[in-house]
Nucleic acid binder design. Sequence first.
DNA 1: CGTAATCATTTTAACTCTAAAGCATCTCGA
DNA 2: TCGAGATGCTTTAGAGTTAAAATGATTACG
Lengths: 184, 184
Amino acid sequence: MADGTAKYAPPENSAVDPVDFETAGAEAKPELRLWLRLLTCTTMIEAEIRQRLRAEFGVTLPRFDLLAQLDKAPDGMTMSALSQHLMVTNGNVTGLVERLVAEDLVTRTPDPQDRRSQIVALTRIGRRSFEAMAAAHEGWVSDLFDGLDPAETAQLMRLLTVTKRSVGATIGRTATKKARNVPR
Amino acid sequence: MADGTAKYAPPENSAVDPVDFETAGAEAKPELRLWLRLLTCTTMIEAEIRQRLRAEFGVTLPRFDLLAQLDKAPDGMTMSALSQHLMVTNGNVTGLVERLVAEDLVTRTPDPQDRRSQIVALTRIGRRSFEAMAAAHEGWVSDLFDGLDPAETAQLMRLLTVTKRSVGATIGRTATKKARNVPR
DNA sequence: CGTAATCATTTTAACTCTAAAGCATCTCGA
DNA sequence: TCGAGATGCTTTAGAGTTAAAATGATTACG
């Protein structure tokens, strides 16, 4: 950020205090204000984590996310599985994996069982790198949430579980997928 | 999405249920699980809104967000103000505004007071288009959150306010900005 | 006044991401 | 068995995005 504009993390002398989407006044529906607040929280946290990953480990957030998925799959995962768990497109994963292979952090090997598939797995270096990042990451996240006491943390978790279920139900209900294999 | 992979909104026959980042087991710190849950909720909602904006209005989410900011500023905003409120870089706004100008949804005029600045404002078409989108958008958001009763909505809002404050404080505390005008 | 610092914006390079189309492989039922 | 549809992945074109540097304009101040 060579220019003067604070992008993430507005400096303490910022005129606009916590700058964010939430210009929606009190006249807006509560659900809309809730969504904007949710989005603001996520964006702020994401920006902070992105910046720290870059500054301290020279890694981008998408790469970190991908490594995190692989770390939990000792035998590796297919491209599709990665795509689903990361909630991004297949094409996106293709490029991401390519770059990580070039950095020797992951391997990509054909699946002998299914010649369409590629199995992606962490290299030894990849795993070691990720472990260092993950430890720091967990600390950052703790710091960011340290204004919540344990009861609030638990309560927020509960409400987000309800939210996730609500969103999932609404999406499922309105989904207009072609193949509706499941009989209604 | 011509391929068979559900990107957003996994179809009801998905094998992995609500596919998301949250492979983190119970062994992880509560704050980390909370953050992953928060991220999942936001990503799911964002994906759904993005898809509907595209399907029903042929507009992308970043463009919608930019229009939303302008809608609340009858006299327009500078590029910097947009950048701050949208929490994206200046360069990003430059390109976004360029495309919206090409679509006749916004205007960009030099600020007579300050020749460095550009004032961006909605055109009449832009405002009318946005109003239609905003109405639909508000309805979508309501639907997505309709699994929460009013008390839960209020409670979640309260906890996110605490979260936002916590994140803001942590970021402010650890910010290593060059110009620290405010005396410690 | 003059100049250094600041500020608003654009530019650049590299990366991330989506949506859609295309190719190869697999599955399964007639 | 064989062909249609489903599946796994890549490719393509375009948009969005960041970080960093560059440009031009303003402000502060000595």
